[in-house]
Design a protein around this nucleic acid. Structure first.
Length: 169
DNA sequence: ACCCCGATCGTA
DNA sequence: ACGATCGGGGTT
């Protein structure tokens, strides 16, 4: 049986976590699928990171320990799902942008807004500990897919970083 | 209290 | 290329 990814998995370099999450199996309630696209947002020096200008009520969970969800509301109509990485006081997270659904149906969810909308992920799911939650977690998988690194989508600052990772094919 | 703008997406 | 839509956060 594939093991649930523990806190130590997320408590590492955000770039490493973002790359290694590709091909892993995300489980949310009865839904499960392979992660196909991620982006890294890393701390105070990354102008695109919500934590770049310090701790606020919205981004507070990023400043806590790794392995928690960070879900925020954007553009008046969408939610985006992240997993917090690195240790306490080191605010960083991986945005989940693509999920190849396996259960309950086969479907490729492309884009963070569509992904959350389809799964029903909202701000109610902010701050969940995916290292211990029985209904929201990530499982290891035998896949370690080829991927490419590109600029992150939809940002105006920090475009020079190739911190978006997409499974090839 | 106010105002600007955003880690998006569907339509044109 | 652009509009929908509204909460967050910095500024007054």
């Amino acid at each position: 049986m594939a093991e649930v990814l523990n806190r130590a998995f997320f408590d590492r370099s955000t770039l490493t976590v973002a790359q290694q999450l590709l091909g892993k199996i995300m489980v949310f309630g009865n839904a499960a699928g392979l992660i196909t696209e991620t982006e890294a947002y890393i701390g105070q020096d990354d102008p695109a990171c919500h934590a770049a200008r310090g701790k606020t009520p919205r981004n507070a969970v990023m400043f806590g320990p790794a392995g928690f969800t960070y879900v925020y509301f954007i553009y008046g109509m969408y939610h985006c799902l992240n997993f917090v990485t690195e240790g306490e006081g080191s605010p960083a997270a991986v945005l989940i942008r693509g999920l190849m659904l396996i259960e309950p149906s086969s479907l490729h969810l492309t884009g963070p807004g569509k992904l959350c909308r389809h799964l029903g992920i909202t701000r109610d799911h902010n701050g969940i500990d995916i290292a211990t939650s029985p209904f929201f977690y990530v499982k290891d998988s035998p896949f370690s897919p080829d991927f490419e690194a590109t600029p992150r989508i939809g940002i105006t600052k920090g475009q020079e970083k190739l911190w978006r990772f997409v499974v090839r094919g």
